[in-house]
Write a protein that binds this DNA or RNA. Structure first.
Lengths: 328, 328
DNA sequence: TTGTACGCGTTATCAC
DNA sequence: GTGATAACGCGTACAA
């Protein structure tokens, strides 16, 4: 006999009344509430959440999908978990290692009612395929998805990139190398197009020979610089995929006795704490705010189911900012 | 009518047989299996995991408890999520922000059958209090818990600390400052005792005036060094709570024109990728392996429930290693 | 305000 | 190999 039935038996009240007390319904007499609460304490009762989820159809769990938990997505993850918790939701991590089948398991978990909604941080499956899962629960993406089938809270990184370019050119750096992340990602495309457009507009050389892809980590940055200096000409500045890459460039430049910023300027991306510490010029990226927005988007749907009405939370307009430091 | 009942109706078989097919039981005729599988495909059926969990009493979810998701715990988290997934378990993050009540919610979720087990990365509640939850499911800790009531996969950091001290002294650094993490943590106590014991054994000065606490981040490290140089005497070496603190020290030393390692030697802890990039001497800490061990400990219990027999996975002996680089 | 009866979707224990 | 039937623990119309 479950503790629930035990409470029913000991209190003399019915299943419904006990349930009402548990769920803080107002339609319960003070005496009934008091008596039932007392017995609940005595029995050290806690509701079985699987039973609750089965009955209500909600789990109060949200899945977060990413290739791996790394430094780049850390602040997004941290903020999302926190804000979700504030609203009574737990967060399940789905690390896919870039594998499509692994990734699909997260979406299958939406179908199988394991999670109420999903946040995509990074994903490798086609939006077309993923769209089919939208009927099972709200899905929102941080990564830009190309199609509008899955809503995204991403900002157009072209704006941030232009800030960096304006800064560099205003300082006299015109021969610029670009270290990108994923080749096929929309962010990479945005950045590349912003670069090419900006350079053309200012009648400056577009150095596609200084494009490098799949540069994510400090080690990647080091290798990229070692490889760049083998060329006949050294760029005046390097635009990095993120701050960690910039750290690698900075470190390798020191080893190679390349003076910064005289011989080589460096601009990072995201404005992490380390960029501050190491004096790296970078683009402030409101990542935590985007995580908040991501949850708000989900809450717009999940809150309605929970509170019985439309839940609209304020989505403030977010902006990049240039943070000038010692590497430019 | 649920899809399950739909399958029963369309196939003509009973609830039990359908369930057997879903769970790959061998006691099903090939014809029955084929027919039921076909219908399952047609209906695009997936089991409701809440119903499964309610019925079996297992969720295949493990909670991971920590103050916040930060760089320090990142590799542990990442590895744990991965290994758990390999064994069919999902990971729920509980960030407590150091709040005892928040933290207790994770343990209550063990009682309420939301998770099958818990991993404690950091925790603030008393082991005494937490011990009461052990009856509801396996709990294992990364952080050392003092009492043996909750098993821990932590290594005694004193060993790693001694490696650092031997290295420093062998290089002639004898006036050593210590930057610790949490004041009351067992790791801090281990390190402090290791330092004091080592210095006494070698008839060297124990500089308790150079103890600093709650130093976690690069910024903390910078501040610590700024504060240390206001003293009458500068230490010859700094032992840091982790690599990020070491980065802060290194950066601030550069700003202050303090030559490294001539005027000041630096030793980090953990051997993160950035320590490699920035040439920081550090202690290699097998964090990922400890995460693996943590899961294996849980699996020893959860696997038994799942596979019907004791599951013993190999726990290899782990060791710290000194990684000498340019800061010593 | 309270109680009845049923539903949620699946597993498990018996029989046969 | 197959099939009734009873759990699993709780929410909730609906009626009283």
């Amino acid at each position: 006999m479950s503790k629930f039935d035990e409470i029913i038996r000991l209190s003399g009240y019915s299943r419904a009344t006990v349930s009402r007390v548990i769920n803080h319904s107002r339609h319960v007499s003070p005496e009934a509430r008091a008596k039932i609460l007392t017995i609940m304490k005595q029995l050290n009762y806690v509701p079985n959440r699987n039973a609750v989820s089965l009955s209500t159809g909600q789990t109060n769990q949200i899945g977060i999908v990413m290739a791996s938990t790394n430094e780049i997505v850390l602040s997004f993850l941290n903020q999302f978990v926190d804000i979700a918790m504030d609203y009574g939701f737990q967060t399940i991590i789905y690390t896919t290692r870039g594998d499509k089948e692994n990734e699909l398991r997260a979406f299958e978990d939406l179908r199988s009612k394991r999670v109420d909604g999903l946040v995509i941080v990074t994903c490798v499956n086609e939006p077309r395929l993923l769209k089919a899962y939208c009927e099972y629960g709200p899905i929102v993406s941080w990564q830009r998805m190309g199609s509008d089938e899955i809503p995204s809270v991403a900002m157009d990184q072209a704006e941030g990139y232009r800030l960096a370019l304006e800064h560099l050119v205003s300082k006299g750096y015109t021969r610029i190398a670009n270290l990108f992340g994923r080749v096929e990602s929309l962010n990479t495309r945005s950045r590349r197009e912003a670069y090419e457009q900006f350079m053309r507009d200012h009648h400056l050389p577009v150095r596609t020979d200084w494009y490098r892809y799949s540069v994510f980590t400090p080690t990647d940055g080091e290798e990229a610089l070692r490889e760049l200096i083998t060329g006949s000409e050294l760029p005046q500045a390097v635009l990095c995929a993120n701050d960690y890459v910039a750290i690698g460039i900075q470190s390798e430049a020191n080893k190679q006795a390349i003076s910064i910023p005289d011989q080589l300027a460096i601009v990072g991306f995201d404005d992490t704490e380390l960029a501050h510490t190491l004096g790296i010029t970078t683009i402030y990226n409101p990542i935590a705010e985007q995580a908040t927005h991501a949850f708000y988007r989900l809450w717009a749907v999940l809150g309605k189911q929970q509170m019985g009405q439309e839940q609209q939370l304020p989505l403030e307009k977010l902006q990049y900012k240039l943070i000038a430091r010692q590497t430019t």
